[in-house]
Design a protein around this nucleic acid. Structure first.
Lengths: 136, 136
DNA sequence: GATTATGTTGACTAACATACTCAGGTATCG
DNA sequence: CGATACCTGAGTATGTTAGTCAACATAATC
């Protein structure tokens, strides 16, 4: 039931950028504040840019900034983009359902569905703004 | 946030044994009803036995049975035994806490704690008996 | 226009986890 | 004894994770 380091790192980077909104931050600066290795962080920031969460500027005085307001960045969506579905099993995933041969009689499915719902409710209700303002 | 097939398989096996309580079931029978390959299921059943959930009888007419009443088998404990902590990150795990250098100022930790709590609450409230009786 | 600071891109790798299989070994019953 | 079952440890194929690295492209500044 773990979150990967990639997901955690991406959220750390978004938080750093959210805290310095309207300023541009270099990869090196973000790396210092998140403790993520520069070369790995590059990959992650690029992915966040392709997903539309960040914008970048190249060359001298370049760097990264948020591309959206913090209250428009939903944590559940970020995690889904980086690590796939929130559901613990494919048979209860809404975003990427997978059939299971036992499904009709499976006594576990209702439990997995409860888990899915509670994780998704939490993460889809939370935005970057909530994290930054410490309002959960 | 996935549950591994090993965890899912273990729960399937417990359910089958719970449905046929007081009877002994062979690995082959459990395999048929759970769709888990016999050789893999052997490993998992053995582990469940070592953990105290099952008892076995060798030789002819041998097989597996529950070692506890279904209402004494807590799903959260089973999953923790098979896949490690329920918490999404070590920094919010109660059963196996791991420190994180950012911890003091980390804005993510409160979110991970909420996730942990809601998963743990669900799984620690649910027993095998609840699953079998379809009472969640 | 050369230099330098920055992001961009793709390939690569080491380590680990997952989901199994397989070849025996051992206990029990008839 | 011999068939039936569980027990045990080793092995393996595949994929994922968490990165590294080298070379490139772009933009600002001197």
């Amino acid at each position: 039931m773990k979150v990967s380091s990639r997901g955690e790192y991406a959220l750390r980077a978004l938080i750093v950028l959210g805290l310095h909104a309207e300023e541009i931050s270099t990869i090196a600066e973000i790396s210092e504040q998140t403790l993520v290795p520069v070369a790995y962080l590059e990959q992650i920031l690029l992915q966040l840019k392709l997903l539309g969460y960040l914008k970048s500027k190249r060359g001298k005085h370049g760097g990264y900034m948020l591309a959206k307001a913090p209250d428009q960045i939903v944590i559940g969506e970020v995690i889904r983009s980086l690590e796939g579905p929130l559901a613990p099993m494919g048979c209860v995933s809404i975003t990427s359902y997978e059939a299971c041969p036992l499904e009709g009689t499976c006594l576990l499915k209702p439990l997995w569905a409860l888990i899915r719902d509670s994780i998704a409710r939490l993460l889809d209700q939370t935005t970057l703004a909530h994290l930054i303002e410490r309002k959960l």
